[in-house]
Write a protein that binds this DNA or RNA. Structure first.
Ligand code: MN
Ligand code: MN
Ligand code: MN
Ligand code: MN
Lengths: 226, 226
DNA sequence: ATTTATTTTTAGATTAATCTAAACTTTAGT
DNA sequence: ACTAAAGTTTAGATTAATCTAAAAATAAAT
């Protein structure tokens, strides 16, 4: 049983992410972009991952994860997101700070540690960005979330996640008080630039751009009683 | 400003440990043994550490840490021991389990993380093995500890640390209820094999070998009032 | 159907970290 | 003082991971 390096783990995670969002084989270029490296380096690594039976790889065809590869990637996602919860809930980090540190913590190898951490955190189902945390068997919780941009005027939703994870976006959301759990009602939609006027938590109103409303996920809610 | 690899960090820690206990330049062989590697590998690495100005190195002479090297090593010790406290106090790991995981966690790079962790743990001064945790400035708490084997019959001490850190020794101590904070009075000392009979917490009596009493540190206590 | 552009792979080099075997220096024993 | 032993360094190879430049395959455009 060969052991797997941090770098290999990062490649698996990248492939997992690409296949998950686009739902097809990951191309060399896509992986190179995700990993911030050259296509040549990716080609090299793909050979190694294929030899270890972690990916299905045929030259010129792109790659998908094998079952073992997929399990490893899912476990990495689990670790990453649990650490993010830890950093936010126990160490008072903000949601724009946690990702970078979790990128390191996710590589700590100790199954017992991660199960204890999960228990310590109360078996959270979602991370600070609203992303689902797979359980020990690799099962994700699903949720019927839609982009805020798809709500029609008069409709209400609760913010449950973000599409984009950049610190600048998350900091913007903090400033606007558009955090997870916030209730937003679409008051008006401007055709011109597709910006929307929102009522936040049945209180103040703000205007957000289309870019913002496309990157926020909400769970549709029945109209507020008031 | 060159960055430092995990491997380099481990070498610094090894050198720190050797210089600390023996209080003289660390020899290539000593480092090789501590790092579980060959003397040749150590020689290679010493050149690199010297080039980075982390050690004072002259061929055939052995090495000592420079100020920056020493600072880095101390910070590693700080991180290692804080993580050990976390694992024991928050995640209910036993003191024989924490070291191995802390060996990984100590390499996480985030000054903010470690300060938050320190705060979360209530600024502990000692780790689960009774070893002092340096503060953010690198200052250690000292304590007048002596080996249990140096107590004379009739004298009493409180267990505050261990000399040896092997899981088997720590598990033995758990079994014997000789954990940190335990009060032990030397009842009788056998000249033949230098084993001692102890009264534990003013209650039951047990016999421990010389090897055990040499590897346990106690703080001398005034005789119990009873 | 050719040509052009894009994508992917190979070739050849580089760096960190390691190894074994051989050479060299220092220390210890007679 | 000389020789043997122990300790340390160099020489030469290897492996993971990366890079740039060049070649090859695929896709797109005329
Ligand atoms: Mn993240
Ligand atoms: Mn996240
Ligand atoms: Mn330890
Ligand atoms: Mn310790």
């Amino acid at each position: 049983m060969e052991s797997i390096s941090n770098t290999e783990e990062n490649y698996l995670k990248a492939i997992f992410k690409i296949c998950e969002t686009d739902d097809r084989a990951a191309s060399t270029n896509a992986i190179a972009q995700e990993m911030q490296t050259s296509a040549a380096s990716v080609s090299d690594m793909l050979k190694r991952l294929a030899k270890k039976q972690l990916i299905h790889y045929e030259k010129w065809k792109g790659v998908t994860l094998t079952d073992t590869g997929s399990q490893l990637a899912t476990n990495l996602v689990r670790k990453h997101r649990l650490w993010e919860v830890f950093l936010k809930e126990k160490l008072q980090f903000t949601w724009d700070e946690v990702h970078e540190i979790a990128e390191q913590l996710e590589h700590i190898r100790s199954p017992k540690l991660i199960e204890r951490l999960d228990q310590f955190l109360g078996h959270p189902k979602f991370d600070p960005h609203g992303d689902p945390i797979p359980d020990a068997d690799g099962n994700f919780s699903y949720r019927k979330q839609i982009p805020l941009s798809s709500l029609k005027p008069g409709e209400t939703g609760v913010i449950v996640g973000v599409q984009e994870h950049s610190p600048t976006f998350l900091q913007y959301l903090d400033r606007m008080k558009l955090v997870l759990g916030t209730r937003v009602r679409v008051m008006e939609q401007f055709e011109y630039d597709e910006s929307v006027r929102l009522r936040v938590n049945d209180a103040q109103e703000i205007l957000v751009s289309n870019k913002v409303s496309q990157n926020l996920f909400v769970e549709k809610a029945p109209p507020s009683s008031k």
